[in-house]
């Protein structure tokens, strides 16, 4: 689908299209699905949220909302094979972007705790091709007065490019903050490894980390 609409845009208006989509803040909101899996692939925790930076409302809007709930889990779990390969070649805890699922434009970033729990973050940029139809009219009018806001959007927006260094850094900060809270959970004498994390405080903390960094 994405390929078809890309081909439809004439090369001259492609620039205009990209500017106007960057320009419109409502189109820059990334949707995230974060999950923690135990070393034996049991889901311990999951949460869906959206971009909060730059006036985002923090609500996830996946491209296919009716199937997102299970498709996100499918996509995340299908990246486990790649994760387990990367696990033994890269000794770091933050493994960065490891997998992409093009049909849903889903990018998966992984973080591995030393004790084998996997933090996986699926991020899905907003559906850009739908805005290209209106871009021809919008682009010309907004091109002059919006150069400043365009640069601001592109420099601060994590949503614009899921594999950019800024995004990787932001996700790293997010993962580190979740890791801190995960260690606190694991250190609780009432928590055994492999148990679902039900603490509402933990959920609040992860949401706050998402708001802060993503």
């Amino acid at each position: 689908m994405a390929a078809a609409s890309k081909a439809a845009i004439p090369s001259s208006s492609a620039v205009l299209g990209s500017i106007s989509t960057l320009n419109n803040p409502s189109l820059l909101k990334m949707s995230y699905y974060f999950t923690i899996l135990s070393p034996t692939d049991t889901p311990l925790f999951n949460i869906a949220f959206g971009t909060s930076k730059g006036g985002g409302d923090g609500i996830a809007r996946f491209r296919f909302p009716e199937t997102a709930q299970y498709m996100n889990q499918f996509i995340i779990h299908s990246s486990l094979d790649i994760l387990e390969e990367a696990q033994w070649t890269n000794g770091g805890m933050y493994l960065k972007h490891i997998d992409t699922y093009p049909p849903a434009a889903a990018y998966i970033t992984a973080f591995l705790t030393p004790s084998g729990a996997r933090f996986l973050l699926l991020h899905q940029p907003p559906n850009l091709p739908s805005s290209t139809s209106s871009s021809s009219g919008l682009g010309s009018s907004s091109l002059l007065g919006t150069a400043g806001s365009t640069t601001r959007a592109s420099s601060s927006s994590i949503a614009a490019n899921p594999t950019s260094p800024q995004t990787e850094e932001a996700v790293r900060q997010f993962m580190n903050e979740v890791y801190e809270n995960y260690v606190k959970t694991a250190m609780s004498p009432f928590y055994k490894q492999g148990m679902e994390i039900k603490s509402p405080v933990f959920r609040t903390r992860v949401t706050a980390a998402g708001k802060k960094w993503l």
């Binding site: 705790t113 004790s115 995960y182 490894q193």
Partner: peptide, 10 residues
């Protein structure tokens, strides 16, 4: 041991 590992790295 499992716990200490995470704590140690943290």
């Amino acid at each position: 041991g499992l716990r200490l590992l995470d704590l140690l790295f943290y």
